[in-house]
Every structure is written in C-alpha cells, then in structure tokens.
C-alpha cells in the first residue's frame, strides 16, 4: 500500500450535506408504512428503500379517532432490528421530546407528521437541534420553505393520508411545482415581494428561483394506493413516493408492494406499469376527499 495515504481526524456528523444527502439516496424509491417487524420484512423484500415505523397506518388512525402519538419504542426497535434498510418514525408536529426519543432510538429519519395529532398549534420543532434528519409535509411552496428554514432535510406532499385517494397529493405537488416555475421568471425586485407572499425567507426563495427546484429532495405522500398512482406522482415531479395504508390495507400486500416499486422506477413506461398492475387483488377501499369534514383533513394541520 502506498505511504501517501493519510487521514483527517475530525469527522463531523449531522451536517446539512449528510442530512440532505441521506434523502438523495432514497430517490426513485418507495418508502412504506409498516406496523410490525413482519411487515417491515415484507416491505424490504419487495424493494422498499426505507420503512416508516408506526403503530397504526393512517387509515386506522382515521377509523379509530382519538389522539395519535409517537409509536412504542419497543415496536420501533423491533423494526430496526428486523431490516437493514433505513427506518423512519413519526413525531407529532411541535413535539420535540418525541423527536428526541426517536433520535435516541437511532431512527434514520424523523417525520414531523400531520398524520399524528399536533402537539403545538403555533410552532414546529427546531430541526437544526437534531443530528437525525427530518422530513416534513407541505401543501404549497411557502409551507415547504418554512419547514426547510426550520431545518427539514426532505419535503413530501401532505396529500390526504389514509384515504387511498391521490387527489390531494396531486393538488399539493402541482401547487409546489407551479409556484417554483413561477419564481423562475421573477427578477430580483420581484423575489422580495414573492418571499413576503410565500411567508418564507428571501434567501431560500432566491435559491429556489435559481435552482428551479427545492434545495432538498421532494417526495409525494398521502393517498397513493396503486402502481399507476405512484407513477403519476413521479411524472408530476415527485422524486419518490411514500405509501402508507395503500399496501398493508390491500388484499395482497407483498405483491402490491413489489408492483408499486416497479412502477416507481419505470414511471414513464406504461407497459411495465400495466404489467405491474395485473392481478394485484383488492386495493384499499378509499374515501372521497370531498366528503371528508374539514376537521378530519390532516392536510390542514401544520402551517
């Protein structure tokens, strides 16, 4: 071995590059909600890039009602033990102690999620205070940039979780993409006013205008139930998809999970999506979002 090899002594953890870079590694992939180790293994075998450990999938949270909180640490640890892919877990909005607990358990990403009952109606958690990176939901560009300003290293559309209805995820992703496209045409004078309208820091607004994209990875979440849904979100510009209730509330979870992975990779190839869509058994039943009372819309949580 050559003698020119030397080492630097100061490794640095929790940097923006390491946090955002982690999400870059998930791109083109599917992140699946799982409630136990057995489901986590099914997800990993199907080709999931990560799993989201939670006690109840959103469809059940919706059905059961009551306050939805962080999951039992035992259950999260069992899932961490069961798979080699990254494990994410959800904290309530603004519940930074739940986030501290999740970090101490060694989860790879924290989802500060509107699917759980918010703990703070004014403040989201300060995500710079953590080594573990955060993903947050957004319905529009201003919301996405406010989360990034608080330290989020990944953004997902909120969609309407637990409905099996992709309409809200489409709305949020189109909204974010359209607002980014609009910024591209602005000159410097206009960017100050745009920042005010978006209620977001000017530096971030300027960065988005220059990049033509968010400075972090953008996934889709909330209502994806079929391979075609996943491919739709990717064609609309999502860099990957979260699938919540859609897999384990369906007739044949292993098969549907693998099919959604295929369609996410070959999102622009209708023949492959067609093959992936064959004989999947029953999809989750689904809820029409326009019949959902305002109080039951998770996307309205967070600000």
């Amino acid at each position: 071995m050559s003698s020119t090899i030397s080492e630097n002594q100061t490794p640095e953890t929790g940097t923006a590059r390491v946090k955002r870079g982690m999400a870059e590694q998930l791109k083109g992939g599917v992140i699946m909600d799982v409630v136990n180790a057995e489901q986590a293994k099914i997800a990993e075998d199907a080709g999931a890039v990560a799993v989201m450990a939670l006690e109840r999938v959103p469809a059940d949270i919706r059905k059961d009602g009551g306050v939805a909180r962080m999951s039992d640490p035992n259950m999260i640890e069992e899932i961490i033990e069961a798979v080699s892919i990254p494990v994410m877990a959800k904290s309530r909005i603004g519940h930074f102690v739940e986030a501290q607990v999740l970090q101490s358990l060694g989860v790879d990403y924290i989802d500060e999620s509107e699917v759980l009952t918010p703990a703070d109606e004014v403040n989201h958690s300060d995500k710079f205070a953590f080594t573990t990176p955060f993903v947050c939901g957004a319905t529009n560009l201003g919301e996405a940039l406010r989360r990034i300003a608080e330290g989020a290293a990944m953004i997902r559309s909120k969609g309407e979780a637990g409905t099996g209805n992709v309409v809200e995820a489409v709305r949020h992703l189109r909204q974010i993409k359209n607002e980014i496209a609009r910024l591209r045409g602005f000159d410097n004078n206009e960017l100050y006013a745009a920042a005010k309208d978006l209620r977001a820091p000017y530096e971030l607004v300027k960065e988005v205008a220059e990049l033509g994209k968010l400075p972090v990875v953008l996934f889709s979440a909330g209502g994806v139930a079929t391979p075609a849904d996943a491919a739709l979100m990717r064609q609309l510009g999502a860099e990957g998809v979260f699938v919540g209730s859609g897999i384990f509330k369906s007739g044949d979870p292993a098969k549907r999970a693998a099919a959604i992975v295929k369609a996410t990779t070959f999102y622009d190839d209708p023949k492959i999506i067609a093959d992936a869509s064959r004989n999947l058994g029953e999809a989750m039943v689904g809820i029409n979002c326009d019949t959902l009372p305002e109080a039951e819309r998770y996307a309205n949580r967070g600000w």
């Binding site: 050559s2 090899i5 080492e7 490794p11 929790g14 390491v18 982690m22 990254p86 060694g106």
Partner: peptide, 14 residues
C-alpha cells in the same frame, strides 16, 4: 453505523 453516525471528513485519495 446508522444515519446518526453519518459524517463528513476530508481524505487523501491516491
């Protein structure tokens, strides 16, 4: 390690 141990460090590369 896991994500919490992910890090940056400078390296000499032959």
């Amino acid at each position: 390690g896991r994500q919490n141990e992910s890090f940056e460090a400078s390296l000499d590369v032959n």
